[in-house]
Design a binder for these strands. Structure first.
Lengths: 317, 317
DNA sequence: TTTCGTAACTAAACCGGTTTAGGTTCGATT
DNA sequence: AATCGAACCTAAACCGGTTTAGTTACGAAA
């Protein structure tokens, strides 16, 4: 009933446990037939090496961490994470690594989380999300010696490995789409500008307008939440010269903004055009349906995982 | 630079490593001053026991698993998981356990996931979500000998530990609210009836109508997605005698349904009242704002985690 | 025929904890 | 004075792998 160990396999194959280990990790120094005999025995006993024991002897955790510092509300509304995690899993599972998740409320706890993961050697590396323009985490992680990759557009300086989808083209396409509909006053409701992906989408919006030779419309900074999206929209509509189109930095704010506009009697898309970003499922089922920008988040997660494992490998070499 | 081990502490305190272990897990058999001296030394060296080594010697993983079998879309739209996980974390972290997350596409992979977690002894127990009315997972987990708790309303038979919030009162309150507004034809758009929380919300809706002496209105089964919510709403509105109110099993379907109704010129809430379930942040910012049912998901997560650790403890005793 | 080198394998140390079986020391009994 | 028991602590085995040092057998070279 109890799980077989490497000793059982060794006994069954009539060799030492060292030999079993060699066969398993196919390292040189074993005759082909012996190797086959060992693997055969392992197969018959249904033996798989214990990651626990393995982790101890190779001094690796065989796991990576994802620490998310967000309020439950913001997190719950964001379709990004589950999808991203699904992508990460595809790579991790085939490399025998596990994903350790921590959801914390604020940045202080987040630091504490990283410290603990490092101190207890629970993980071999971590993902960093929601990067701030002036983020202290890269320095902290460097200090802790924990390999990390940033999810999303990275920083130029100091250099830090990152895997991101460039927001630029998507936002630019949205702006061009609106311009082609004849809009001239195109506003933007951004995410927090202290966050890199808030700032980068904003920059992309401004850049696209410039490229089209259009004036930079009004821009209101929000925080990706529905509430802030509604507030920002209210502010824009109250302007002396309200925009005729708004590019939102995510779908959630776009939805809230659209509802608010409609409640004020603004006809969408007649008087006001709206675009979102993320391509949530619900976006297509709103009235009118929301124009949005999608990206292949599964592939993104997979790429990020591969990059992190790569970093970990070269670290231990 | 390298992490101190139990040996370093033992040397520093001038005792054997067994003594250090005793002091750490405060077991009897050590003089009070010796114990204090050891803890002092540990503190000075900044030593924390390695969960890796500990896991190997106590034959426990010191981690629990959460396997989610959902499409990225459904999962992303559901505010439940992140919040729930945050609640789980609060308990796990103080007990020195980690949460291992796996997101898989379908049920076949899900079984495979559980099998792997059990075989590799990666976790000491798991959470089971989205329970089906005829679910094979309880049997599988029992066979694997993996302690598990079901998240959500459990099954009567066979008995299996579960931690759930009873949907009944919330749905019933929504129905009573609608009835108090004068509605007599109250429909329901349910989740999949093969899922326990789909079925239980439906039963609660039917029960509440019965208690109020109202006729059971039409009911359409959907699958919690926006698309299905819109389709179900279309079906209800096309009835010869359409309902004047609809109770949706979640906010996402309610939102899609509301948009669809509005696009057909139905006045909400004039001609049609709508309630959701989940209390997503966006619900409050729609026009009109969505009446919904909220529950304390953080506390729920914490309770589920406590229950699981309890099960694990008694298992190993 | 002895010597050497190499391929194939084994024995044992090691990772960092926990746990059990002993071993001292000491005061209290007989 | 010898015996006992309890309190306190140490040594060593153990968890299940990996890895290194060392052993054996065998064919080729001197």
């Amino acid at each position: 009933m109890t799980r077989p160990t490497i000793n059982d396999v060794a006994r069954a194959a009539g060799v030492s446990k060292g030999a079993v280990s060699f066969a398993l990790n196919n390292r040189p120094g074993l005759a082909a037939d012996t190797r086959e005999r060992i693997l055969q025995a392992a197969r018959e006993l249904g033996w798989t090496p214990s990651p626990r024991a393995r982790a101890l002897s190779v001094s690796r955790a065989l796991a990576v961490g994802l620490v998310v510092a967000r309020s439950a509300d913001t997190l719950g509304a964001d379709p990004f994470f589950p999808t991203f995690i699904a992508g990460v899993e595809t790579v991790l599972s085939e490399r025998g690594h596990a994903l350790l998740l921590q959801v914390v409320g604020d940045h202080a706890r987040e630091r504490e989380s990283y410290r603990r993961l490092a101190r207890e050697q629970r993980v071999d590396g971590v993902f960093v999300t929601d990067l701030l323009v002036e983020d202290e985490r890269p320095a902290l992680l460097a200090e802790l010696g924990l390999p990390a990759v940033i999810i999303g557009p990275g920083l130029e300086e100091p250099f830090f490995p990152s895997v991101g989808v460039d927001d630029g083209p998507g936002i630019a396409a949205a702006v061009r789409h609106l311009a082609s509909l004849g809009h001239r006053r195109i506003a933007h409701v951004s995410g927090p500008v202290e966050m890199v992906h808030g700032a980068s989408r904003r920059a992309a919006w401004a850049g696209a307008l410039r490229d089209l030779g259009l004036p930079e419309g009004p821009c209101v900074a929000a925080d990706f939440s529905a509430e802030s999206g509604a507030a920002a929209t209210r502010e824009l509509l109250d302007l002396a010269e309200p925009p005729t189109a708004i590019v939102y930095a995510n779908d959630l704010m776009a939805m809230a903004g659209m509802s608010l506009a409609q409640s004020r009697g603004v006809d969408v898309p007649g008087d006001l055009s709206i675009t979102g970003y993320d391509d949530t499922e619900i976006a297509a089922h709103l009235q009118p349906s929301l124009t949005t920008v999608s990206s292949d988040v599964i592939a993104w997660g997979a790429a990020a995982a591969r990059r992190l494992l790569e970093l970990i490998d070269q670290e231990s070499a």
